[in-house]
């Protein structure tokens, strides 16, 4: 701070962005919920299922690891990120940030970057634990692809979450809808995808967010060759990202009134 008259200079963007990233990372590290949702919960599932004989019924170890990965992304993005954003909007944190010279996109981008980085790290840990407890032999290329797909999955669920916060004002409603949506997407992807609800449901499920992501993860972990189904799943994910990101940007409200 200088005392030589008042300050009129626009601050450097790099400093603003790094300050935001730093603060958002601290918030993320301090938030037990997000860490539990993104890593601990999937690991618990992996460890618990490694004891039973349920693997064959659920589709084998690669599907279980895929499920754990998907669940970590789904819960931490759709609940963790979304609720934190809605809460900060409700108590006025976003408004306070918005009156600074940092552009709006920077405020949201910083949060997204920290969230995706956390999901990446969590996904790597989950897949390593999964490979160990479920006896999968994975090469480096597969690990890298897991990371790539985790980014796509995180982006997809974050886009859905962003749209939810855009369309719904109240934090309580967002919390309730987010939970329901999560259960719905999970059931649709798992039960529908298993085929027990019929062929139509299986098709719908395969194109649903959870279904598509599960397909990508499990084909990768299975070492199966790239199939037409994988292309469809990838397209579905990209489609969801585009659609929900547009909704999230178009309808986003910075205040809760």
């Amino acid at each position: 701070m200088t005392n030589t008259g008042v300050n009129t200079a626009r601050p450097p963007r790099g400093l603003a962005m790094s300050s935001l990233l730093r603060a958002d990372s601290i918030v993320m590290l301090n938030s037990k919920t997000s860490l539990v949702l993104s890593a601990l919960l999937p690991i618990v599932i992996l460890v618990v299922t490694s004891f039973g004989k349920g693997q064959s019924r659920l589709g084998g170890s690669s599907l279980l690891v895929s499920l754990a990965l998907t669940l970590g992304l789904l819960t931490s993005c759709l609940l963790g990120y979304t609720l934190a954003l809605a809460h900060d909007r409700e108590i006025g944190v976003l408004q306070r940030l918005r009156v600074t010279p940092a552009p709006n996109w920077m405020i949201i981008t910083s949060r997204l970057v920290v969230q995706v980085a956390t999901n990446l790290l969590a996904s790597i840990i989950v897949v390593i634990v999964g490979a160990i407890v479920h006896g999968l032999a994975l090469n480096v290329g597969q690990y890298l692809l897991v990371i790539a797909i985790a980014v796509i999955g995180a982006a997809m669920f974050l886009a859905i979450g962003q749209a939810l916060v855009g369309l719904v004002q109240s934090t309580n409603a967002i919390s309730a809808i987010g939970r329901l949506l999560m259960i719905f997407l999970l059931l649709l992807g798992l039960l529908g995808g298993s085929g027990i609800l019929g062929d139509t449901m299986k098709t719908i499920a395969d194109w649903s967010p959870v279904g598509a992501l599960l397909t990508l993860f499990s084909d990768l972990l299975n070492q199966s060759a790239w199939s037409g189904q994988d292309t469809s799943s990838l397209l579905a994910c990209v489609g969801y990202i585009v659609v929900f990101t547009s909704i999230g940007i178009r309808w986003f409200r910075w205040n809760s009134r």
């Binding site: 400093l15 603003a16 300050s19």
Partner: peptide, 21 residues
């Protein structure tokens, strides 16, 4: 208005300092 609940006073000062250059 409010500041991020998880940040300490020190961290808040650091953040807003950075945002204002």
């Amino acid at each position: 208005s409010s500041f991020q609940a998880e940040l300490t006073i020190q961290q808040i000062a650091r953040l807003y300092g950075g945002l204002y250059g």
